[in-house]
Design a binder for these strands. Structure first.
Length: 501
RNA sequence: GGGGCCGUGGGGUAGUGGUAUCCUCGCUGCUUUGGGUGCAGUGGACCUGAGUUCAACUCUCAGCGGCCCCA
């Protein structure tokens, strides 16, 4: 990443008009089209984006299955009476629910909600399946789409009225087990972002007044976008016993007593794709880390009339070797395009590694490898091509992650006092952390003028305001004595303020 | 939630009360291959609806859609 000329160019372009730049990348890199007229807020996910989703899905699904989750599928529609059984869910989603009132030309007796989330239809079945403590923990997940009729402006992958996601739902014998589950899933989300998408995230919980409807605690991973806004990148909820009570999940415990279960739910949507596009891409188009790239390496042969056969044969051999080694490789042997065109096209489409093979390489028994993110070019031996390509793909990932991490580190600032928080957010965007008393009223003075909010509060273990023994600053004034940046009362926790998507 | 800008071939733009130009794009042929090769031929558009008008892509209103700013 020593090429700071390009880095400057990128930064300027993305920061100048991030919204339009994003829309352009989405369209031109063939990721999505807008939905039909009259269906504002819906998108058509094109094969390249869907392939990214499939990679992400495969990565996360494997983690789920290794940790006791089974996949299932529940109906798209939820009867109104089901939805109403948990009142927070109704209130929380009511304005955004799409309803079916008619089918086969007949008015339905009970209207059906198009699921905005599936707690209300999954939990009743979990209730049927749980009889004894031996049935717990019980974990199901479904990959599906949900519909939330957003009033706010939509943006491909970030906010659409229908979106793809997975939603996991679990039941546990104890509060503590449910908490462990909640954090397990959050860690897996963190891993998707950091290990697969090369996007560092901040991990923590939402303020108590901003939890998922009906939830006791909502945990979140937050990612920083280049325009300085935070994206809620995945959430994992400890639902306490409210859903278990509403839908009657009880079990006979070892001591033969009937007990109420504790439940969780957790979801990650294709918003991850939006964050992925935003974070790494540049003025040349899409940039993808190798793990999610549908094509990891593209071979561009360069020939003259008299060298064509030799170059192509050599290139085909390399392609075969890479394919055998499990690299997702494509040989671009189109006759009607010249190399320059192909270079630009593959850069637009975000193929991480380009392999150039011309007469020079053939003569010397070599290959030229070019990294998509920064154009770094290396000549390697034909011998051992699979290993060197693998090494370069790893290096690419590391470059992307390091760049994103550096950005994030530089965008977390501290402030004390309302004006300083507002000023810092206004000038730089990003995150501003400040000591906070925990009261919603102290968020308002930031939220009102600026539409920034507390997007995340670090977990107790990560919060310097909280002692290792769990005492908060107020309860242990001797060693801390921090006060809330807004009201001046004793601070309980550190709050991260940011504008958000 | 409030305000503003905008909608013209596939994409990006210009212009006009009398349906249009440039750059690109697709196709065909030749040419070309280490950063979007060149030439020729050819194809293709004024978001939708209503109103004003002899005439609307242009003006007015509404709708749909996009972008930006503020809350």
């Amino acid at each position: 990443m020593s090429d700071d000329v390009q880095e400057l160019g990128i930064t300027e372009s993305k920061s100048h008009n991030t919204g339009e730049w994003y829309a352009e990348v989405v369209r031109k890199a063939g990721l999505a089209d807008y939905g039909p007229e009259g269906m504002s807020g819906f998108i058509v996910t094109r094969p390249r984006a869907y392939a990214i989703w499939e990679r992400l899905q495969g990565f996360l699904d494997a983690k789920f299955k290794n940790t006791g989750v089974q996949n299932a599928y529940f109906p798209l529609f939820i009867p109104e009476s089901y939805l109403e059984r948990e009142k927070d869910i109704v209130e929380g989603f009511d304005p955004e629910v799409a309803w079916v009132t008619e089918a086969g030309n007949e008015e339905l007796e009970e209207r059906l909600a198009v699921r905005p989330t599936s707690e209300s239809i999954i939990t009743p079945y979990i209730s049927q399946w749980v009889r004894s403590h031996r049935d717990l923990p019980l974990r199901v997940n479904q990959w599906c789409s949900v519909v939330r009729w957003e009033a706010t402006e939509t943006k491909p992958f970030f906010r659409t009225k229908e979106f793809l996601w997975q939603e996991g739902h679990t039941a546990h014998a104890t509060h503590e087990d449910a908490w462990t589950e909640t954090l397990t899933r959050l860690d897996q989300y963190e891993s998707v972002y950091e290990d697969l998408l090369a996007i560092p995230v901040l991990k923590g919980q939402k303020p108590d007044y901003d939890t998922f409807p009906g939830a006791e605690t909502t945990t979140t991973v937050e990612a920083l976008m280049p325009d300085g806004k935070s994206v809620q990148a995945g959430t994992s909820h400890h639902l306490g016993q409210s859903f278990a009570a509403a839908f009657d999940i009880t079990f006979a415990d070892e001591d033969e007593n009937e007990r109420l279960a504790h439940t969780t739910s957790w979801g990650l949507s294709w918003r991850a794709i939006g964050a992925l596009i935003m974070t790494h891409s540049d003025e040349q188009g899409l940039v993808l880390p190798p793990g999610v790239a549908p094509t990891q390496a593209v071979i561009v042969p360069i020939w003259q009339e008299d060298t064509k056969d030799a170059v192509l044969e050599y290139a085909e051999g390399v392609a075969a070797d890479l394919d055998d080694a499990g690299v997702r490789v494509e040989l671009d042997d189109r006759d009607e395009r010249n190399p320059g065109f192909k270079f630009n096209e593959h850069e637009l489409n975000g193929i991480p590694l380009r392999v150039e093979i011309g007469p020079n390489e053939v003569d010397d028994g070599e290959l030229t490898l070019v990294h998509r993110p920064d154009g770094e070019s290396t000549v390697v031996d034909r011998e051992g091509v699979a290993a060197s390509v693998a090494a370069h793909l790893d290096e690419l990932y590391a470059k992307l992650y390091a760049a994103a991490e550096e950005t994030l580190d530089g965008e977390v600032r501290e402030a004390d006092g309302r004006d300083e928080i507002l000023g810092t957010l206004g000038q730089h965007g990003g995150y501003v952390k400040a000591p906070w008393c925990g009261d919603e009223a102290c968020e308002a003075p930031i939220k009102e003028p600026m539409a920034a909010e507390i997007v995340m509060v670090p977990f107790e273990d990560d919060d310097p305001l909280v002692d290792a023994d769990g005492d908060d600053a107020a309860g242990d004034a001797g060693s801390h004595g921090e006060t809330c940046a807004i009201c001046g009362e004793p601070a309980q926790r550190t709050a991260y303020f940011a504008k958000s998507y």
